[in-house]
Design a protein around this nucleic acid. Structure first.
Ligand SMILES: [Zn+2]
Ligand SMILES: [Zn+2]
Ligand SMILES: [Zn+2]
Ligand SMILES: [Zn+2]
Lengths: 146, 146
DNA sequence: CTTGAAGCTATAGTTGCTAGAGACATTAGG
DNA sequence: CCTAATGTCTCTAGCAACTATAGCTTCAAG
């Protein structure tokens, strides 16, 4: 049985984050010691590692909640799980495309500025006028945080 | 003089967002009509377009605050502005590198899954075990929202 | 037995907005 | 000129996914 600190170290998750996951129902309520401290076994450890890994791959907590409840039903078809992963892939590709355009635009800006006074700064100038941009990089839809 | 709605349409920014920018001091307090409605002139319009464009390029509001106050001092050196832009470029490159790894990993997952039961789903399996991943894609530091 | 680290709860803050309620202002049509 | 439909006003609360703080209790080492 691990304390919350040990579990956090083992899974690479901060202690308050574990408590947060419990609070929102992503982790079940932990067993408690006689002194009211949380105790975790192998199952909780695996579940937390799953969450951490999925977070690292950019899945939202909502998606992870669905993936976890799917993984609790091993006999069912995995079509839903695969669909969640494919949607995440599409989302990542979308972000990648946007960031690639941003990178190009930022590079243009910093390369074109010769340094000098703000009045002549290409960075400031371009920021004030999108028509100086080479690509259309504007925010299409909202994108969740990485 | 534009009302807040016209300004929003012109700059591609939603009305509550403009009020929010004013509230946090990114836009100055607007003039008011006799009926207490906000009125904007060309200067406010340009400032808002600047903000919008910088947001589209992924700058944080903090960075934009600094860029705006720099652009208000045209005689000063633009070194600070260039540094902010370069830092943003570095940040974008970091995110790009991470997303590229994520994309590869997600593609592997969805390609390897043959479909079938959850018990055999490669997606669920890989999510539970990072050692099945080909790349090290783990979250390095915290990254601000895009 | 004492001290310091680790745990507990509860609340509030972060970023960049967005949504809602309920009241006032403006504008277009009849 | 009146009404109805929009637009705008303030204020509050909510979103994701944590993170930080305060003020306590419990535990483990020396
Ligand atoms: Zn410059
Ligand atoms: Zn642009
Ligand atoms: Zn599958
Ligand atoms: Zn992995």
């Amino acid at each position: 049985m691990l304390t919350i600190g040990k579990l956090g170290d083992a899974a690479g998750v901060k202690v308050p984050t574990i408590r947060y996951y419990e609070q929102i129902g992503l982790l079940p309520e932990a067993e408690r010691s006689s002194g009211n401290q949380r105790l975790y076994g192998r199952k909780a450890m695996e579940r937390l590692a799953f969450i951490r890994h999925a977070r690292d791959l950019g899945f939202t907590l909502e998606a992870i909640r669905d993936l976890l409840s799917l993984s609790d039903r091993p006999d069912q078809s995995c079509a839903a799980a695969d669909a969640i992963a494919r949607a995440q892939l599409v989302e990542v590709e979308r972000r990648l495309a946007r960031l690639t355009a941003l990178k190009a635009e930022l590079e243009r800006m910093v390369v074109q500025c010769a340094g000098g006074k703000i009045a002549d700064c290409r960075v400031i100038e371009v920021l004030g006028d999108h028509s100086l941009c080479a690509t259309d990089h504007r925010h299409p839809e909202t994108e969740p945080t990485p």
